[in-house]
Design a protein around this nucleic acid. Structure first.
Lengths: 358, 358
DNA sequence: CCCCGCTCTGAAAACGTTTTAACTTCCCCT
DNA sequence: AGGGGAAGTTAAAACGTTTTCAGAGCGGGG
């Protein structure tokens, strides 16, 4: 760094030009690399830029260049392990292509989501990724349709992760996990361990991700020849606290079940804790499984059997798919696979009327 | 939304002006709200803007406005619960003031950190927050001094969370937890439960955050009248995997300790798992404490006694402090307090030569 | 010897906004 | 009635780049 660093304001391209003894056009050509410049001049410019510790003004660049390489991710909160992984995937894939990644959190508030998308339009994001299930009502559909059209008009693309496109005609991509298949598989796992009375804890009617998991759960039950009445779903919503509360409630009544499939791992965490608090043991007295396989799921008590949804890969896939085909292949739906990871929270149900032998 | 939405490119302020029958200056004044405009004109402009679904170009704004309200957080990874919380704090505090928040991840690579800070200079961030301990060597000091001076010259500020300012003269703020006090307190907790042979698992020589915790650990031992040789610190570094590996190793030898204080909760998670794998029980055979109180620490097996470092508050404090005094109160050092949260991973040590009575 | 074309460089326009300075009106005061 | 503001509005400059267009220098082929 030179000793004559500007003490006030930023160094502009003009000062670099002056010091190098060339015009601003030449400096721009060297620095942006968009145009060949003979080695001698090039070196002189580079030298001057380095001496002055010049940094380009991204705004000026974006202004004339008409936009910039930026992707925005919008999610409920970064402190949720699952969302954090998705964000990391997006960020990694974006960074690998030299794109900037902006993450915004909404706390689940549609108003803040709208606000953020608006902001991203102002910022000239070329790709906006909305992640996380949502309750799908008219307001939602209208909102997303608006986003999609506005972004599309500006030459940007919208991808929805784990939430539905409002209409086949809307210019948005959808990338998500096959929730139904995942839930079906994990429920089948419980079934094949011998469980028959299984409750689904953490339904959230209207939320498409959860609805799909509930559907998978019911499908597994049906496939195993159980009547529709065998399904018990507790619509307590997501989150550790909700899981804890609902499970506590459930345990107050006479126990009509031997296993629980939780809406996600956080719900499972709450449920696990509630069960322990009630003096029961998992999996000895009750089996429980989760969903998502968050990083600390194997440190739960006991290590949680759950279905792995490669969250980071979801994020990567979202940007990869959106950026791959420049032609407008909108409206496409992409499903990502999942698989069960078996740990220690499941064992055959206790035999009726007495404790199982060790 | 009007039926005549521009189908190509963005709607500019000029088109709004035209439709409203005023000049661009007037539109700008209405939209930016920097200058009073009579209600009638105002309404007409607003109407035109809405009809055209106009969104301002943030770049043009930032260009003329000389920068923009944006804060950038740089951290190792968002998937680490502690960092995620810090990021959330920063984001929340920034959003509350109408600032934009950009989070960048480095994976711990100084080169990527440099690259990102450079990028933020280009983007015109007015506040850059570097978070996370780091090994402090000459390269680090030089790097940070460079950031600080460059940002300062551009009228931006630099705040360091949990890492040291290279030199009192450098224009950077430091905000961090009192690591030494926290480690001293949690070690004292173990001591007062009767433990005498305590190992510190997760040292990382050169990393100032960890060094401070080790110092606190040693101080607690000394205060309790134990000789310096009583301290055993295992420099295995951070992360769940490191903790697991180191603990496994430790358990291979004859056990010379009854408790372990982990460098952070992730190390504790690994250690807990290693102990369980070895057929031992916590806290019956061994007591374990962590550091940070990450959100899932209470779901560990057993629920972890640890020291709570309010991470979100750290993030909030960083932006609050940096933005509070416009005068250049640089070089200041702010320490945030911590406190112990007691759960179930500590109990008095087993009596020598036999199992403790229940 | 002249002209063409190529390489290198520079002047200036453009990007979309904010803001300053100036210019009308119109009203009120003397 | 005339002058001084105030209020409302506009034209134009400025922000820092990229890019187009054109000019200058120069070597080679006819």
């Amino acid at each position: 760094m030179g000793s004559d660093m500007a003490s006030k304001g930023r160094v502009t391209i003009r000062e670099v030009a002056e010091r190098a003894g060339v015009s601003v056009a030449t400096v721009s050509r060297v620095l942006s690399g968009n145009y060949p410049v003979p080695p001698a001049t090039r070196a002189r410019v580079l030298r001057a830029a380095r001496d002055l510790d010049y940094v380009a003004n991204a705004h000026a660049r974006a202004l004339v260049g008409g936009g910039r390489k930026m992707v925005a991710v919008v999610l409920r909160q970064v402190t949720s392990p699952f969302y954090a992984q998705v964000a990391e995937g997006v960020e990694a894939e974006a960074a690998a292509r030299g794109w900037l990644c902006l993450v915004g959190t909404t706390g689940g508030d549609p108003a803040r989501e709208l606000e953020f998308v608006q902001l991203m339009r102002e910022e000239g994001a070329r790709l906006v990724i909305l992640v996380g299930g949502v309750v799908e009502d008219d307001a939602y559909r209208e909102r997303v349709a608006h986003y999609a059209q506005a972004l599309d008009a500006a030459g940007a693309r919208l991808v929805l992760c784990g939430r539905p496109a409002p209409d086949p005609g809307i210019p948005a991509l959808v990338v998500e996990f096959d929730n139904e298949a995942g839930a079906r598989a994990i429920t089948a796992h419980l079934l094949s361990a011998g469980h028959r009375r299984i409750v689904f804890l953490g339904g959230l009617p209207g939320n498409t991700a959860l609805d799909a998991r509930v559907a998978g759960y019911r499908a597994a039950l049906a496939e195993h020849g159980l009547p529709a009445e065998a399904a018990q779903v507790v619509d307590c919503g997501l989150g550790r606290a909700a899981g804890h509360r609902a499970m506590t409630e459930l345990l107050k009544n006479t126990r009509e079940f031997t296993a629980v499939v939780a809406g996600d791992d956080m719900v499972a965490a709450g449920a696990l804790r509630a069960i322990t608090d009630a003096g029961l043991r998992v999996p000895h007295d009750l089996s429980v499984v989760g969903y998502n396989d968050i990083p600390l799921a194997e440190d739960f008590n006991p290590p949680l059997t759950t279905v792995r949804t490669p969250a980071e890969e979801l994020g990567r896939a979202a940007v990869r798919i959106a950026l791959r085909d420049p032609d407008h292949t909108a409206g496409t739906h992409h499903l990502l696979g999942t698989h069960i990871v078996v740990r220690d929270s499941v064992q055959p149900p206790p035999t009726d009327g007495g404790p199982t032998p060790a």
